[in-house]
Amino acid sequence: MSLFRSEEHVRRWTARHDYDVGAMLDLTRVWRLANAWYGDPRASDWRPRTRDESQAVLASVGLTGEFWELPR
């Protein structure tokens, strides 16, 4: 997941490398995602999320659809 100055920069870079465009998120959405995704691994009761729990986190910030579907 890489940072770019703008969507134009993403499209230029993906074209140059012959990659699919993929998905682009603004910084606020990624900020919300990180806050929802990361608990504190120093907490004794921390545990890895299940696949379905991770999928729910993505959905909680509006990331739904085929691109955001985690492997089963």
Partner: peptide
Amino acid sequence: PPNDRGVVHFLVPA
């Protein structure tokens, strides 16, 4: 929320 400009690119689907 961030005040800076920028875009995060996800090249690979989940």
